[in-house]
Design a protein around this nucleic acid. Sequence first.
DNA 1: TATTATAACTTGTATATACAAGATAGTAAA
DNA 2: TTTACTATCTTGTATATACAAGTTATAATA
Lengths: 238, 238
Amino acid sequence: MQNKYLQIYREIADDIREGVYPSQSKLPSEHDLMKDYDTSRETIRKALNLLSQNGFIQKVQGKGSIVLDAKKFDFPISGLVSFKELAGKIGERHRTHVEELELITPDETISRNLGISKGGKVWKTYRVREIDGERIILDKDYFNQTYVEKLTKEICENSIYEYIENELGMTISFAKKEIVVVEPTEEDRRLLHLEGFTNIVVVKNFVYFDDASLFQYTESRHRPDKFKFVDFARRTHG
Amino acid sequence: MQNKYLQIYREIADDIREGVYPSQSKLPSEHDLMKDYDTSRETIRKALNLLSQNGFIQKVQGKGSIVLDAKKFDFPISGLVSFKELAGKIGERHRTHVEELELITPDETISRNLGISKGGKVWKTYRVREIDGERIILDKDYFNQTYVEKLTKEICENSIYEYIENELGMTISFAKKEIVVVEPTEEDRRLLHLEGFTNIVVVKNFVYFDDASLFQYTESRHRPDKFKFVDFARRTHG
DNA sequence: TATTATAACTTGTATATACAAGATAGTAAA
DNA sequence: TTTACTATCTTGTATATACAAGTTATAATA
């Protein structure tokens, strides 16, 4: 019975996804939702604000909450989702090849990106994502060993995030992302199917835990023709 | 004296940017901020939640609000900012060339993207962004005439968003963005400096007003070597 | 010394109230 | 008929209170 507003958020989000509240229609008023869910108006408002942040609704003062087109804002890769979670949603045939996995003493670049002090070690893993028989994405992951003590091939093949959150009991919280386009390296060409492509999309990820500690740096290298990034942005006035 | 929590948000955000609260330090407790700003705890919490959403701080229950590295999360292009606002921040020498500006009857694709009914007209403008003497970005903008009645070359050269928000008094609210990589068209090659480049980064933007009406569709076409997209993402659990 | 318990301080959740402000529909007046 | 007003419904802001839950430092205890 905890986190009432989160439960209400999830219920309404599901209702929107399933078409119970169609696009362009209006949600019941806060007063009505208050009675429906037997709670206070502030709790309803917390749930509605979450829906607004995540692009499900647009609140208009005096009018109500307008439902946005869920299909149009479909699977936003902008969030912080693992490949397994993503692949599960798009439902395509996918495989993960663990190309490398070792505990290393990081070089200067990795140390700086992960904020590692002298002597600290790092788990490094290269994983190739194969979709419909094509090797499309190369994920180069680096984990600070202070937070992720041990990794195995099995964990890397399944889902490292699942391991971290469910087994280690840590909470992955936020990330800074950076997207650039560069020329493929020899390594990219060796590990991916890049015939005829002269560019590669690199998504750099700095991932943090709940307590603001930086535990992961990742470079996700995508074949350009298969790359797509969807984002929902609100304009900040001021 | 209106929007107390927004003012507090802006003040603390500025303080963080200016180093008054350095990275990794902690903000005063909500109780202290409450006394500092002579307001209630809920108002402080509204401001802090905004700071958290925008990547300025990380709140940790029982501990406090940890200040994140503002430099690392600097100028996130992920938001909804006009080229003029962006160029002003990076402070580089820039120019805008208005290549085309006309009121058109939209073709099928544009009609669909803007949700225009039969007979509706659209303002179309092509603008090339020149930075440090190089023609880097081609912005192809389409505005639903229902909402933006008239555009002039002067407005396009300055800032259309400034015109819409200040002159028309409308509030630009949110956008759906989509980033893909494609091969340049003849048009791209004619209007931009693309010697030697075989790919171009396309950012598609669907931009909405306050009341959830779609008024603009834009394709921002970037030379890949100059493209950089920075984003701050929070993981949604559930 | 090392461990445990306690108190104090932090943020998180839930509720209630009051009033402001935008939107809308119906009513009264011109 | 048209206009203007008013009542009512909507969301937005600000405040207050109570308790839950996580963290930390201190004091008591073994």
